[in-house]
């Protein structure tokens, strides 16, 4: 455990150049399927890092491993300098980790307000408060701020199951922006959105604070390259190449495996 990469892992998160998120030899298999294989990757604090690759490349599985939705079968994951490999998802959230899901995971019967309220409560104290309190109003106000940010103020008091698909995707994003996030992982946030909705999504992500570490899985290559400082290409569960958007756009391997799969 004395390799240079592990000393990186334990460095403080906010120091420039040190990883906000570090994966070392991370792997996960489902039976015979190696969804993620020996992935070593850094999400440096404050960087916007796109993870691209064809369907089934293991992008979502990688995010699930980072958030603790799945446990890795191999390797270590460190968040802000702390080893979180075996921690439960609700513990990792306390370290500022947030995510959106490729397939919306929302509280269907509850209102937009309550969904956001709960997301805020989840990262605050008072989980076991058994009666409504005056403090709830503070969180409700904050929920309204986030709803405004993701364009859902009109739908604030409507249950999720009457929202349009696009609105549900916006809420999915709002859920990940609550509290004081350090690392936010977006899993195909633009999938299924109209061009106009995509535009405002891009604006929203671009306007997020630069101190925030962002992981982004996105099939829309233009959006991905535009939003990111660094790009990693995955295939068959493995990292093929990591580089700047310009490098990636020019990389012959990418042309072949990714762009080929997309446009060919």
């Amino acid at each position: 455990m004395s390799s240079p990469s592990t000393s990186d892992v334990h460095a403080p998160q906010r120091e420039h150049g040190h990883p906000g998120l570090a994966l070392d030899g991370v792997g996960r298999s489902f039976g015979a399927v190696h969804a993620v294989k020996d992935v070593t990757l850094r999400f440096v604090a404050g960087e916007r890092h796109a993870v691209l690759g064809p369907n089934g490349a293991g992008k979502t599985t990688l995010f699930n491993l980072i958030t603790g939705d799945l446990l890795p079968s191999a390797g270590q994951i460190a968040l802000g300098g702390t080893d979180v490999t075996t921690l439960k998802p609700h513990i990792r959230v306390r370290q500022g980790l947030r995510r959106t899901y490729q397939q919306s995971q929302l509280f269907e019967t509850m209102s937009v307000a309550d969904n956001l309220f709960l997301a805020l409560r989840g990262v605050a104290r008072g989980h076991l408060t058994l009666i409504p309190t005056s403090g709830d109003q503070v969180l409700r106000d904050q929920a309204a701020d986030i709803a405004e940010k993701v364009n859902l103020l009109d739908a604030f008091d409507y249950p999720v199951n009457v929202l349009s698909y696009g609105q549900q995707r916006q809420l999915e994003i709002g859920m990940a922006l609550v509290g004081d996030p350090q690392v936010v992982l977006f899993d195909e946030p633009a999938a299924g959105l109209s061009p106009a909705e995509r535009g405002s999504l891009v604006d929203l992500i671009e306007a997020l604070p630069r101190t925030l570490t962002i992981g982004l899985v996105e099939h829309d290559l233009d959006i991905a390259l535009r939003l990111s400082d660094r790009v990693t290409i995955m295939q068959d569960g493995q990292v093929m190449v990591t580089g700047t958007p310009d490098d990636i756009a020019a990389d012959p391997v990418v042309q072949r495996i990714y762009l080929g799969a997309q446009h060919g």
């Binding site: 609700h90 995971q105 269907e108 509850m110 709960l118 997301a119 990262v123």
Partner: peptide, 14 residues
Amino acid sequence: RDCERRAAAIGFHV
């Protein structure tokens, strides 16, 4: 009840 996975993902100890 609605979505156990998200409840955990936003910080609740289900």
